[in-house]
């Protein structure tokens, strides 16, 4: 059986004496990040919304932090949601959203930290059985309408995967221009240490005659709300 040294030896052999000095260091870094003005952010939000719609996502627009709970509760009620699963927020207080949902008579599953191995399967099933999963994204990409979700103990990424309807909130400060900026914003450390998913629209396939169908394994619908902090 081969081990690391075997493989490395084979590869070294294969590369032979080809001079490595010649290998140009590729500087693939994107444009440097700079602070965005409120105007820039509004512009990015518009672009984000446009791109999200082009990948069949539902753009809910921008709202103030204190309006988010009501907006989502209304959406849940409108779409006939009976159970919703919700994780902890990043910058947004999702507790308020849970309360608002409960007020609407929707039963809420809070993915509490510290799932133990025994009830993991059960918890996954309960998340899968929920009609709606609600989560906050760590970052949103304007040029592609993409959301970056970092999976943590209190914010498992199955919230954005298992329920048929996915609601994702993102703080307007977390909007970036393109994929390179998103990767830079999240940073090598965060990415080395967490499972991260970039989500661009609802789950889709083109496997039957290259015709696009939504909702294969992941959510059939994706609703995104951009939250603007109250003081601006």
């Amino acid at each position: 059986m081969a081990d690391l040294s075997d493989i490395v030896a084979r590869v070294k052999d294969a590369l032979g004496s080809s001079a490595r000095g010649d290998l140009a260091e590729i500087d693939a870094n994107g444009a440097p990040l700079h602070a965005l003005s409120a105007n820039d952010r509004a512009e990015l939000a518009t672009q984000f919304g446009h791109e999200l719609k082009s990948v069949a996502g539902d753009y809910l627009g921008i709202c103030r932090a204190d309006e988010a709970a009501a907006r989502i509760a209304a959406l849940a009620a409108e779409t006939g949601v009976r159970t919703a699963a919700i994780g902890e927020g990043v910058a947004i207080d999702t507790g308020a959203i849970a309360t608002a949902l409960e007020t609407e008579g929707i039963s809420v599953l809070r993915t509490a930290p510290g799932v133990d191995a025994d009830n993991r399967t059960q918890t996954l099933r309960r998340v899968a059985d929920a009609d709606m999963g609600i989560a906050e994204a760590d970052c949103a990409i304007a040029s592609t309408g993409t959301l970056a979700v970092v999976s943590t103990v209190s914010r498992p990424s199955s919230l954005t995967l298992l329920p048929p309807s996915s609601v994702i909130l993102v703080n307007v400060d977390r909007l970036v221009r393109d994929i390179a900026a998103a990767v830079a914003t999240l940073g090598a450390n965060e990415i080395a240490n967490h499972r991260v998913t970039l989500i661009t629209g609802p789950s889709r396939t083109a496997d039957i005659e290259k015709r696009i169908v939504l909702g294969v394994h992941g959510p059939k619908s994706l609703h995104v709300l951009i939250v603007w902090p109250r003081d601006e």
Partner: peptide, 18 residues
């Protein structure tokens, strides 16, 4: 422009992770 899911996998789950 970008595929629907881009998954970054790094290792097994941490204790308490779902």
């Amino acid at each position: 422009k970008l595929t629907t899911y881009t998954n970054f996998l790094r290792g097994p789950r941490a204790d308490g992770d779902l």
